[in-house]
Design a protein around this nucleic acid. Structure first.
Lengths: 221, 221
DNA sequence: TAGACTTTTGTTGTGTGCAACCTAACCGCG
DNA sequence: CGCGGTTAGGTTGCACACAACAAAAGTCTA
């Protein structure tokens, strides 16, 4: 199960595996996450589990209350909207910068991402789809040349991707509009047009946000 | 020394105290931060020290290399510029939103901040100044009504404030232009003018960035 | 003397035990 | 029946010990 060579530390393994559990809906929003039960389930001690939970907390995926414990985030409609507002601003800034300095190599990586994305979508493989989709946006953020901005984009991507899992439009739609939108964005980047790329990115993000269904009920905290 | 009631946990205490050491220049950029020496110095075990270091790493103040250890950040000129670019976008977004929904109570808090800021500046108390300055900007971010945005602003404030400490213009200038600039920003917020507030904030941030002296030398990593 | 190997030292990664804390169930009293 | 107080269970916070790893010092050989 656990391929040791893929992870530098146990804490990293727990972190990745917890995210995997979230993505595959094995954990419910708001659910408690006791350190011991996670530890025994993953075959490690509480120490690396603690570290993984703190890391997830810094990404907003879990909330930790001192002396009380960690629980999976339970984002409200408003919180999701706020996150998307922020994501739009960060990614639009990133793509504006990227359009003027992206390399051929990075453009090719983007094209590869879309191909894989297509495959994931046809296979209805949500986990792969999210990973590849994240790669696409991360590559653009890295192409901006601003490493701190790229860090922030990665952080907000982690948050918003979880929203997609919680309130998931993936299986509800026949053809995924994201893929042609991604292709158009690549074309705008290839012709080095910041304005065009930004406009397409903005439209793309607004589109995917609107697809999100509001939570069935605003549950009490 | 350690006032127990101020800190909920030991890890939080170590975190605050480490930041204090950084602010008061007791730690140099790039310096190694071994867990044990910090632990004995603060009279705690390594466990809370580890947690504090990870938290500082998520703010970009220290860099952690697995199996090697933590060291204080050593930001390059370009990294600082990148951080300020980001800060400008985040804070301008925040103040635009804040101008339309800030409460009287929050406006009063801002005015109080400026008064304290004045005091700190005349006393040449850099630590207090940074804290109050941070409060000013954080209050505006909170007034935006977007909690995630406020989190991000707080994060980027932590980074850029450290730059001020590392390459510090504080004692080099006679009159601090920040204080009248802060007053003007409050006035624009009071009259609920998003455009005016944003323009003033942008100018203010560009001003303070330009005051930063580049590092004496680009040191090797 | 240069270079590769070995040893040693210092540091981080992780498991584990104990104390403190929070939560919730239970019980008795009004 | 409702409610405050008490107690028991479970969970986190922290200290400490050992194992694993990395870097540097030292040693041997060509």
């Amino acid at each position: 199960m656990r391929e040791a060579r893929f992870y530098t530390t146990s804490a990293d393994y727990v972190y990745q595996d917890l995210r995997h559990h979230i993505i595959t809906k094995q954990l419910q929003p708001g659910q408690r996450l006791p350190e011991v039960s996670i530890a025994v389930q993953m075959g490690v001690s509480r120490t690396p589990v603690r570290e993984a939970l703190r890391r997830l907390a810094s990404e907003g995926l879990v909330t930790i209350i001192p002396n009380s414990g960690a629980r999976l985030a339970c984002p409200s409609q408003k919180e999701m909207e706020n996150a998307y507002i922020l994501r739009e601003h960060l990614e639009c800034l990133a793509i504006r910068l990227a359009a003027e300095r992206i390399t051929e190599r990075q453009l090719r990586r983007l094209e590869d991402s879309v191909l894989e994305e297509e495959r994931a979508f046809h296979e209805k493989n949500l986990e792969l789809y999210l990973e590849v989709n994240e790669n696409f946006h991360r590559t653009i953020a890295e192409s901006s040349g601003n490493r701190i901005l790229a860090e922030y984009v990665e952080n907000i991507l982690a948050r918003t991707n979880v929203y997609i899992v919680f309130y998931d439009p993936f299986y509800n739609i026949e053809t995924n509009p994201s893929i042609p939108q991604h292709r158009a964005i690549i074309a705008a980047l290839a012709e080095r047009s910041p304005e065009k790329a930004e406009a397409l990115m903005r439209e793309h993000l607004r589109f995917s946000m609107e697809d999100l269904q509001p939570p069935k009920e605003a549950e009490e905290f």
